[in-house]
Structures are given as C-alpha cells and as structure tokens.
C-alpha cells in the first residue's frame, strides 16, 4: 500500500547540527507556549504521582492536585508489594518475562524480516507487505474470540504462550526495520562479504546486525511499550492469576471495588500503576540516544 520508501543517506546527517542550534537566539514566547503543552502532558502524571502518596481515605477526601494530610507513599508501596500474599512482585516478574520473550522475539523476527525484505529482491515481496499492512487494519480486539478459540484448540490458553505469541507480531517494527535496513546497511559491504564467501546468515549476524543496532533498539523499545501495556488479550486468555502481567493484575484490583465483599483498594491501584509506569519511563530516558537516532533514520521520504 505504501510505496517502497527511499531514505536519505545517513552520511548526510552529520554536518554540524550543534553549531547551527547554538547560533539561534532563544525565544521566550515560543518557550512559554511550548511549556503550556508540557503542562498539559505532565498534569495527569502529576496527579498520578500525588495520588500515590495518599491513603484510600485521603484519595477520596482531598483535592486531586495537592497532597493530603498524611503522606502514605511508602506505606502504599509496601502494601502494593505485600498485598494478597505479595502477588505484585510476581506480576512484575511475569511482565518482565513477557516483555523479554514477546518484545525481544518480536524485535528479532521483525529485524530478520525487515532485513530480508530490504536486501533480497525476491518474488512476492510486495505481496507480503500489502498483506501485512492490510491485516493491520483489522481490529485485533475484534479478533479476540477467534484467537481465543484457536488457542484453546492448541491447548495453550491459560499459559504464558497465550500472551507471548500474539505479542511476537509487530508490523510497525517490520516497517521500521525495513526502512532502516535500506539506509543503514550499504549493499556494497554485503557484496564484498559475499565475494569473500561468507554465508548469508553469518553476514547478517556479524555485519548487518551491528549496523542495525539503533533501529533495533528503537523497535525494541516500542515493542516493550506494547507488551508492557498489553491488557485485553491476557484478560481473555489467562485465568491463573499467577500468570498475570502487571496491567491485568492492576485491572483486577480495580475491579474489586465493583465486587460484593471485595476489598476496595484504589490507593493500591494508583500506586501500582505508578510503579508499573516507572520502569518504562526509565528505559526511555536511559536509551534516549539510541532510539532518537533510530527514529531519525526510520523516518521516510516518499
């Protein structure tokens, strides 16, 4: 559907961006206007942070954007980790496992496939791309029941596979890695390696993969976000709460408020949500350098 994109050569990216930027005069008005946008994006996060310091009662009694009388953040964190026999750390570990297997696998598959589509002009290549983009248009939540029935026949519902296999599918990563391969891996290098007699997979792992690193990290991060935030598929697939990822666990805590005899723990829901968001934000901040260059290279021109 999208015409094969062409990428501006990476080499041209270098010239002196720093100098140019320093040469520009700073503009206060523009800064203030952009700061308004930041206020908009940070306000709900501030609410989350402030709310995590409140007890269940404080949460319902106090002004949303300011602290309640009692500062209960550490209490809440302690309770999040010990509530229901300490299941939260288990959910955290599950999520890490799903992320490593799912997002890691998805990144590997899409890197392989993206590279393959980019470097081998084989027959059927365009058809592959069209079919994949077409399939992306079909809403996955609407496919939930067929997928469930399919997995039930395979006997893998209520198992980690039911969460991992669907997350292995990342069309955006494929797209990213395809365009990235076009740019970052010069065909000449591959040709000379072939002349030297190296096998294709050896070339991929030894030569191409290091060159693809920024793109791979970017794809990985986006896949991590997707996997980390995955809720509705696990909701349908999993019954054993020891297998839950963290989002589903928090969702069930939230549901307790709607249950007869259920323990109402909005404070744990909020603190649990905050704790679940922090690792992702940390990952993005720490790996900023990688994914920014990866995204830059992945940007396309018609």
């Amino acid at each position: 559907m999208v015409a094969a994109p062409t990428i501006r050569p990476a080499a041209r990216r270098q010239p002196l961006p720093k100098k140019r930027r320093q040469a520009q005069p700073r503009n206060k008005t523009l800064t203030v206007v952009t700061a308004l946008m930041v206020a908009y994006t940070l306000l709900p996060l501030a609410w989350l942070l402030i709310s995590a310091t409140k007890t269940q009662e404080g949460l319902l009694d106090s002004f949303g954007l300011w602290f309640a009388d009692d500062f209960a953040l550490f209490d809440n964190i302690g309770r999040v980790f010990t509530y229901q026999d300490g299941i939260y750390p288990r959910w955290l570990l599950n999520t890490v496992f799903y992320v490593v297997a799912g997002a890691g696998g998805a990144t590997l598959l899409s890197t392989l496939a993206g590279y393959g589509l980019s470097k081998f002009a084989f027959r059927g290549r365009r058809a592959v791309f069209a079919v994949i983009l077409g399939a992306v248009a079909v809403p996955p939540t609407a496919l939930a029941v067929p997928t469930f029935l399919l997995f039930a026949k395979m006997g893998i519902t209520d198992s980690p596979w039911a969460v991992i296999i669907p997350t292995l599918m990342a069309p955006f990563s494929l797209y990213l890695m395809w365009t990235f391969s076009n740019e970052a891996v010069p065909n000449e290098i591959l040709e000379s390696a072939r002349v030297d007699g190296a096998g294709e997979f050896r070339i991929f792992f030894k030569l191409a993969l290091p060159l693809l690193a920024p793109g791979t990290v970017t794809a990985l991060l986006f896949n991590v976000v997707m996997t980390w935030n995955n809720l509705f598929l696990p909701l349908i697939m999993l019954k054993d709460r020891h297998l839950y990822p963290i989002t589903l666990g928090i969702y069930t805590w939230n549901q307790q408020s709607q249950t007869v005899g259920g323990d109402v723990v909005f404070n744990l829901v909020i603190t649990g949500s905050l704790l679940a968001v922090i690792p992702l934000i940390a990952a993005f901040l720490l790996l900023q350098r990688y994914w920014q260059s990866g995204l830059a290279a992945g940007s396309v021109k018609q």
Binding site: L235, I236, R241, Q255, Q256, G262
Partner: peptide
C-alpha cells in the same frame, strides 16, 4: 480461580 467478576467471568465461561 478468580476468573474475573460478573460479566468478565461469564465471558470466560462462555468462551
């Protein structure tokens, strides 16, 4: 097994 409350569980059971 807590398979969800109310409708969530009915859905799971029907599935």
């Amino acid at each position: 097994v807590n398979a969800g409350s109310g409708n969530d569980q009915y859905t799971a059971l029907q599935n």
